[in-house]
């Protein structure tokens, strides 16, 4: 099919090959917030556990 394939052969040339730090800042922030969420929720239940001893 001779349709516009732009997103099927996606941006082969645009995807950066280097992984310089600035390009993953958002990922770091995102994962670290997950970490924070895990620590907070775990602590909350741990204190609930201690409270109920």
């Amino acid at each position: 099919m001779a349709k516009n394939n732009s997103n099927l052969e996606p941006n082969r040339n645009h995807v950066p090959t280097e992984t310089n730090s600035s390009s993953l800042k958002g990922t770091l922030i995102f994962t670290m917030s997950i970490g924070l969420f895990i620590v907070l929720s775990w602590s909350a239940i741990f204190f609930l556990f201690l409270n109920r001893m």
């Binding site: 950066p16 992984t19 993953l24 800042k25 958002g26």
Partner: peptide, 8 residues
């Protein structure tokens, strides 16, 4: 996601 978003 981030690399793709930036590439675009």
């Amino acid at each position: 996601f981030e690399q793709t978003g930036r590439a675009k």
